Simulated assay, not measured.
Amino acid sequence: MAIFPFKPSKSRRFDALVQPHLDAMYRFAYRLAGQQQDAEDLVQDVVVKLFPKLDELESVDQLRPWLNRVVYRQFIDQVRRKNRQGDRPLTELIGTEGQTDWLDSLESDNVGPDLQLEHSRLGPALDRVMMTLTPDQRTLLFLHDVDGWRQEDIAEVLDIPLGTVKSRLHRCRAALRKKLQRELEPTEPAGRVGG
C-alpha cells in the first residue's frame, strides 16, 4: 500500500504564496489609483483573477515583481475600460480625493521658523504641481523617489527597458522642477500709486 504525501488544499497553497505580498501589492495599487477604495478593489480583482492560475503562480521565480506587474496591467486595463465609457481626462478617472499629502508622511527634523515657513509653502505647492503631472509621471516619481524602488525593479514591473525608465525619470524630475519653480516664483510687488 502506497502512502501519498499530504498536499495542502488549493486555497492554502494560494494563501501561502500571495499573503506575504498583499501589503506591497496594496501600496503599489494605492500609488497607481490614488484612493484607498480603488486600491483595495484593484488588489481584490488581481487576487480573484490569479486564484484559478495557481500552477502558473507556483512556477514564478520572483513573485513580488511579477505580482506588481499584474497589478499594473490590471490598473491599465481598468483605466482603458473607464476611458471607453466616456471621454474624460485620465486625471479625472484616477481622481485625487482621499489622497494624503505624501510629503506629510515624511519625518521632519526640528527646524527653525524660516525653514518651517518654507516647508509650509513648499508642501502644498509640491502637491499642486504633482497633480499637474500625468499619472504615469506621478507613478514613476512615487515608486522611485518616494517608495525607493530600484530602477531595475520599475523596468521589470512596467515591462519597459531600463534606459526608458532612466530617461522618463529624468524628464519627470525636470518637469517637476520647472513647474515647481514657476509655482514658487515670487510675484512682483505692486508699485506704489501716488505722487
Rank of each mutant, 00 (worst) to 15 (best):
A2P: 15
A2Y: 09
I3Y: 07
P5M: 02
P8W: 01
S9Y: 13
K10R: 15
S11Y: 15
R12L: 11
F14P: 01
D15H: 13
D15R: 13
A16S: 06
P20S: 01
P20E: 01
H21C: 09
H21Q: 08
D23R: 12
A24F: 08
A24K: 14
Y26K: 06
R27S: 05
A33V: 04
A33N: 12
A33R: 14
G34W: 01
Q35R: 13
Q35F: 05
Q37I: 09
D38I: 11
E40R: 09
D41M: 00
Q44H: 12
D45F: 01
D45A: 07
V46S: 03
V48Q: 07
P52A: 02
K53R: 12
L57S: 02
S59T: 08
S59L: 04
S59G: 08
V60D: 01
D61N: 13
D61V: 13
D61Y: 08
Q62S: 11
L63R: 04
L63N: 04
L63P: 05
R64G: 02
W66M: 02
L67R: 03
V70P: 10
I76F: 06
I76W: 08
K82F: 10
K82Q: 15
R88H: 12
P89H: 00
L90A: 06
L90T: 08
E92W: 06
E92P: 09
L93R: 04
I94S: 01
G95W: 00
G95M: 01
T96I: 10
G98S: 00
Q99D: 00
T100Q: 07
D101E: 03
D104P: 01
L106D: 11
S108T: 15
G112F: 04
P113Y: 10
L115P: 12
H119S: 14
H119A: 15
S120R: 14
R121F: 08
R121V: 08
A125Y: 01
L126T: 14
D127K: 13
R128W: 07
V129Y: 04
M130D: 05
M130E: 07
L133T: 00
L133K: 10
T134R: 11
D136Q: 13
D136F: 08
T139N: 12
T139K: 06
L140F: 03
L141P: 03
L141A: 03
F142H: 10
H144W: 05
V146H: 09
D147A: 00
D147Y: 00
G148N: 03
W149V: 00
R150K: 14
Q151L: 15
V157A: 00
V157S: 00
L158A: 07
D159Q: 11
D159H: 09
D159E: 11
I160Y: 05
L162I: 14
T164V: 10
T164C: 07
T164Q: 10
T164D: 06
V165L: 02
V165C: 07
K166E: 07
S167T: 09
R168A: 10
C172H: 09
R173F: 01
R173M: 02
A175K: 08
A175Q: 05
L184N: 08
E185H: 11
E185W: 09
P186C: 13
T187K: 15
T187F: 14
E188T: 14
A190H: 15
G194Q: 11
